[in-house]
Simulated scan of single mutants.
Amino acid sequence: MTVNGTVAEGFEPVRDAFAGNFAALGDRGAAVAVYRDGRRVVDLWGGTKHVDGAAGTGGGEPWERGTAQVVRSATKGVAAAVLLLLHQRGELNLDAPVGHHWPEFKAHGKERVLVRHLLNHRAGLPVLDRPLTPGEALDPARGAEAVAAQAPVWEPGADHGYHALTYGWLVDGLVRRVTGRGTGEWIASEIAGPLGLELWLGLPEAEADRVGRAGPVEGPEPSGGLRLRPRRAVTEAYEDPASLTRRAFAAITPFPDQNDPAYRAAALPAANGIATADGLARFYAALIGEVEGAGRAGGGRLFDPATAALARAEESAGPDRVLVVGTRFGLGYMLHGSASPFLSPASFGHPGRGGALGFADPESGIAFGYVTNGFRKTVTADPRAQALVRAVRESLARGA
């Protein structure tokens, strides 16, 4: 398997780890990009554009530099930036009740849900009593109606649990009421467009051909994340139809085919963002500093220092009511820890179930993006992404 692309001097371990992912960890088609202080230092891709490689389907088509992929929950970190930027601009108060902007949301005691609770996974709304069908889920109005009508399963603010799918309807419902635009539209006009990011929430038809077909792949189990507690506890939580874990991931039943053009064209801020590795890494680079070639005032920096501090200040930590393992969250971002190992305690970002990962590390100036068409069962700490993170750490330790 040929590894394409370039690495700056000192980042050769990342190339080696990327090749190793194909040789030993089950990657079929993937890309990784790393920025340091706003300058791209790693830009690698390889394998096939489509995971299945079926005869007659173009499965053997090579992954190219511009190939994009669904990044699943790595979308959450991009969507979080919308609410934080609205706060930065003075258009949204993080400590205001969500119902201040969204009156219908107040039902069933949710008048106590604050804007920050949507971002730190403390809203108490990780499940729906009646899951949405795929058709309903792709309709932003139906998703918003569902979470507005849902009663919390714990006192808002009192505990935390990963809002795997409801996060998207909560964020989008609020963004629409504050701005009059959907989250995908806002990202396109205020973030992706100005920065030239290859990143979409709601894929335009003109970009459809560049997205690879994804599917499941096998490989070694993770060494962290879901292994932090006895495997039986985690397994039982996912298998029990009554558990918050199972119900949170079943908020859409059955889950849509992620290769369906209609799914990719819709905007689910919790789950179906599409990006190249460079688009994801460049987004995180812009959260913490200026970015090369940004072409806009301020060098393209999105977060001012105060907002960046908010994003990575610990808001939730400890046993997660949904994921079972211990998790740490800032405002919309997972924080460095055993369930989500990044580079340093200052790092913040978000993995995507099955493999994708994007994060920023203000201490080292590193921004990282990894996308793959081979989805694993992992929710956090995917071995392929972690191999690449360790290689970045090794490069920095060597003086890169």
Results as ranks from 00 to 15, higher is better:
Trp102Ser: 07
Gly109Trp: 13
Gly135Ile: 14
His121Gly: 01
Leu128Pro: 00
Val34Ala: 00
Asn120Leu: 04
Leu25Gly: 10
Gly90Leu: 05
Gln88Thr: 02
Pro134Ala: 06
Ala96Trp: 03
His108Lys: 14
Glu64Arg: 15
Val51Glu: 13
Leu94Tyr: 12
Val14Ser: 02
Arg72Ala: 13
Asp52Pro: 11
Glu104Trp: 02
Thr67Asp: 09
Pro13Phe: 06
Ala55Phe: 11
Leu84Arg: 05
Val14Arg: 00
Val70Cys: 15
Gly59Glu: 10
Gly20Met: 11
Asn120Val: 01
Gly58Leu: 10
Leu119Trp: 08
Ala23Thr: 07
Ala81Lys: 09
Val70Tyr: 07
Ser73Thr: 08
Leu119Ser: 03
Ala74His: 05
His121Cys: 11
Arg15Leu: 07
Leu125Glu: 02
Gly10Pro: 04
Val51Leu: 14
Glu61Ala: 11
Asp27Asn: 06
His50Leu: 10
Ala19Gly: 01
Gly77Phe: 09
Val34Tyr: 04
Ala19Cys: 05
Ala33Ser: 15
His101Thr: 07
Leu25Ser: 11
Gly59Val: 02
Leu118Phe: 07
Asp16Val: 15
Leu132Lys: 10
Thr133Cys: 13
Arg130Asp: 07
Val115Leu: 06
Thr133Asp: 13
Thr133Gln: 12
Gly99Tyr: 10
Phe105Cys: 13
His108Val: 08
Val14Asn: 01
Trp102Thr: 01
His101Ile: 08
Glu64Asp: 14
Gln69Val: 14
Ala80Tyr: 11
His50Asp: 15
Arg112Met: 00
Ala17Val: 12
Val70Gly: 07
Lys106Gln: 15
Ala19Thr: 06
Leu44Met: 05
Ala96Tyr: 06
Gly38Asp: 03
Leu86Lys: 03
Pro131Gln: 03
Val71Leu: 15
Thr48Arg: 13
Ala24Lys: 12
Lys49Thr: 04
Ala23Met: 11
Asp43Glu: 14
Asp27Trp: 07
Ala96His: 10
Ala107Met: 09
Tyr35Val: 09
Arg112Ala: 12
Leu128Asp: 02
Gln69Asn: 15
Gly46Ile: 04
Ala33Arg: 14
Ala79Tyr: 15
Ala30Val: 09
Glu12His: 02
Val98Asp: 03
Thr133Met: 14
Ala30Arg: 06
Ala55Leu: 13
Gly26Met: 03
Arg130Gly: 06
Ala31Gly: 10
Pro97Gln: 08
Arg36Lys: 03
Val115Pro: 07
Trp102Met: 04
Tyr35Phe: 15
Trp63Val: 02
Gly90Tyr: 01
Phe18Ser: 04
Arg112Gly: 03
Val127Glu: 02
Gly47Met: 13
Arg130Thr: 15
Arg89Phe: 05
Ala17Asp: 13
Gly46Pro: 02
